[in-house]
Amino acid sequence: MSNNGVFMSPKIMIILGSASDIKIAQKAIDILETLEISYSLKVASAHRTHEKVKKLVVEATTKGVEVFIGIAGLAAHLPGSIAAYTHKPVIGVPVDVKVGGLDALFASVQMPFPAPVATVGIDRGDNGAILAGQIIGVNNPNVKKKVSELRKSYEKKIKNDEEKLITEINGKLFQKEFLNEYNEISEEELDKEEPHTDKIFKESESIKSVENTPMVSVVPGSYSDVEEAKKVVLTLERLGISYDISVISPVRYPDKFKKYMDQMKDVKLFIAVTGLSSHVTGSIVALSEKLVIGVPCSVELNGLDSLLSIVNMPPGVPVGTVGIGNGRNAGVLAGEILGISDKNIEKELKQMKYKTADI
């Protein structure tokens, strides 16, 4: 309620599949309170109260809710059911009820085109709320600042934990003062070497890299990920979203990766397309406070290694993960996020979601 007594629509709606999920929801609530973002909370089952889910989502979308968070365990179809009735971004938080929560994780993340669910780690209600804050922060400087402050609090906690741990170690050979201070590699040192980034698709008429500040940076971790990256940028093209795309590995060329991230500091969000142990997403999150969408690729183990290393991020650094080999959904998710403030993108997005869902 505003100061004049008029009820205001919340920015975020949290929907629980069951009241038993409240412990996970509380993590999200605590974060949203810290970020000072208005929210609503409802309990509705995708299977037992499907009409309620539909009515809640449709009405909330028309009344200005910008992000939905679906929290559910077992056959967690709730986030997907939410995504079926809105063109706003949906975040899925799988809950560990059985089999370590893998059933809920797969049900949430493996959504068909064009109905993405930005899935975070199992039981990570906190990361779901931080991701929602990053989405709101794309167009809200105050929320963006609070998300940044929250990120810094996690950094400070690690520093304090290290200091406490060191004081408790009493080994005779333990060198407590070693590398207490260190210097990062300077930009001048980096400039001495040739860059190891490779621009791709420059000559294509339908897929091109833009030189001015793009809205989105698409980062395939290797050339084996390029085919999936094509699906991402083709979707961005259809939605009228500008982008940069570069193949660059943070493992093979970490210094150049950091330099590229500095060059992309003004983009709205990142989309990482990567297989195997998926260091690309983690490296982007480590070097930027911008929102990150992760696309796992199937290189080994049917892509499960990539999926799990992308989605199960520690507290404070979420990656909104889409299904294995579903780059098109990453493009749609980017459109849902950017379409909140851009009517042209929203128009194209609605056409894609509501008119061509059978593609």
Results as ranks from 00 to 15, higher is better:
11 K>E: 07
24 I>K: 01
31 I>W: 01
33 E>W: 07
33 E>F: 10
34 T>S: 09
38 S>G: 05
40 S>L: 14
44 A>H: 14
52 K>M: 12
53 V>A: 02
54 K>D: 11
59 E>F: 03
71 I>A: 02
76 A>R: 09
76 A>I: 14
77 H>Y: 08
78 L>Y: 12
78 L>S: 05
80 G>K: 10
82 I>Q: 13
85 Y>W: 11
86 T>D: 08
90 V>A: 08
92 G>K: 13
94 P>D: 04
98 K>C: 10
101 G>K: 01
115 A>S: 06
126 D>A: 09
130 I>T: 11
134 Q>A: 03
135 I>A: 00
137 G>S: 10
142 N>I: 12
149 E>K: 06
152 K>A: 06
153 S>Q: 08
158 I>Y: 12
158 I>Q: 12
160 N>G: 03
160 N>I: 08
163 E>A: 13
165 L>D: 02
167 T>P: 00
169 I>E: 00
171 G>F: 07
173 L>Q: 07
180 N>F: 05
186 S>L: 09
190 L>N: 11
193 E>P: 00
200 I>T: 13
204 S>H: 06
213 T>G: 04
219 V>N: 06
231 K>T: 02
231 K>V: 12
232 V>D: 00
233 V>S: 04
237 E>Y: 04
238 R>P: 03
240 G>P: 10
243 Y>M: 03
249 S>F: 14
251 V>S: 09
258 K>F: 11
260 Y>F: 15
264 M>Q: 14
268 K>C: 01
270 F>W: 13
270 F>V: 06
274 T>P: 08
275 G>P: 03
276 L>R: 02
282 G>N: 09
284 I>H: 05
285 V>R: 14
286 A>S: 14
287 L>K: 12
288 S>G: 13
291 L>W: 00
296 P>N: 06
298 S>V: 06
303 G>K: 06
304 L>M: 12
309 S>V: 03
314 P>E: 12
333 L>S: 01
334 A>T: 02
335 G>Q: 06
335 G>R: 01
338 L>P: 01
341 S>H: 09
346 E>D: 15
348 E>A: 15
351 Q>G: 15
